[in-house]
């Protein structure tokens, strides 16, 4: 497996986690828990953003892996 596809996998699982966490941020009844999940979503946004950029850089450097 290439670095690019590994990175894509990790990105996908992070995006999934972000989705679940966003749902929790809305449905948790406790204020503190809601805030913790909300902050988690923010943090994941930053991580996902960084990784997406890295993926883009990889794909421009090695166009043969694009879309895999």
């Amino acid at each position: 497996m290439t670095v690019g596809s590994q990175l894509k996998q990790t990105l996908a699982s992070l995006r999934g986690a972000r989705g679940t966490m966003r749902a929790y941020a809305n449905q948790a009844r406790d204020e503190e828990a809601r805030n913790a999940y909300g902050e988690g979503v923010e943090e994941l946004n930053a991580v996902i953003g960084d990784l997406e950029e890295r993926l883009k850089a990889l794909e421009t450097a090695e166009p043969q892996y694009r879309g895999l």
């Binding site: 670095v3 929790y24 948790a28 828990a33 913790a36 999940y37 902050e39 988690g40 943090e43 994941l44 930053a46 991580v47 960084d50 990784l51 890295r54």
Partner: peptide
């Protein structure tokens, strides 16, 4: 650990650290 290049290495390590902190914070929940 695998990537070549200082900048990418720092980016991965930094984000790994962020996730580790996040895990510690979310553990009780």
């Amino acid at each position: 650990a695998q990537v070549e290049g200082e900048e990418a290495k720092n980016m991965y390590a930094g984000n790994a650290g962020k996730l580790e902190q996040l895990l510690a914070r979310l553990r009780p929940y």
